[in-house]
Simulated scan of single mutants.
Amino acid sequence: MAVQVYVAIGANLAEPIQQLDVAVLALKALAINNTFTVSAYYGSKPMGDVIQPDYVNAVAGFQTSLKPIELLDALQEIEHQQGRVRLEHWGPRTLDLDLLLYGQQHINESRLCVPHYGMKQRSFVLVPLADIAPALILPCNTSLESLISVAMRDELQKLID
């Protein structure tokens, strides 16, 4: 059975735009035919206190038949193939893929929490998500658009449409 999923994509090392381009192709391979869409690419400032380059972010949406943990494993394999090394919390990375939403499900397991815990506060997630799913209602029955402020939109720089 197919389910609609949304995945945040981010990178700030090793040619971030190309990292996103390669990740988009890998994510397309997980999608059921003709269901894949990706937002514009946005530039954003890094979170936390670690000094590092700015990020390039996007969100992909697609339908998949993979179960949640199977999808998580596939996302982590894509990160690994693109050189992701987990050294520092909120540190620089070649690629970060976060499963934001898995249909309307709430998942709280040791390896996976969906909806993604920080998505409601992150402009670099909400704005690109609104590019591809402007009428989305989150599992908490909140509309996506109601979470996005003008300041959030102003924080980001559109890099590639």
Rank of each mutant, 00 (worst) to 15 (best):
77 E>L: 15
18 Q>V: 08
30 L>E: 07
78 I>F: 12
119 M>G: 02
36 F>Q: 00
147 L>H: 06
141 N>K: 15
48 G>C: 11
120 K>N: 12
38 V>D: 09
59 V>C: 08
46 P>E: 05
123 S>R: 05
91 G>Q: 14
153 R>Y: 07
140 C>H: 08
29 A>W: 00
142 T>P: 01
52 Q>L: 12
117 Y>H: 05
83 G>S: 10
156 L>M: 12
91 G>W: 06
95 L>H: 06
5 V>S: 02
51 I>A: 13
81 Q>W: 13
72 L>P: 06
69 I>L: 15
39 S>V: 08
149 S>A: 10
48 G>V: 04
32 I>T: 09
84 R>Q: 13
109 E>D: 03
152 M>R: 00
156 L>G: 07
13 L>D: 04
43 G>A: 05
74 A>R: 13
151 A>S: 15
44 S>V: 01
51 I>T: 13
129 L>F: 01
157 Q>W: 11
115 P>Q: 05
131 D>E: 04
6 Y>C: 09
38 V>E: 04
20 L>Q: 11
130 A>R: 05
136 L>R: 11
66 L>S: 02
155 E>V: 00
41 Y>N: 03
65 S>M: 09
48 G>H: 10
19 Q>A: 12
41 Y>V: 05
114 V>Q: 03
124 F>M: 13
75 L>E: 08
103 G>E: 01
151 A>R: 13
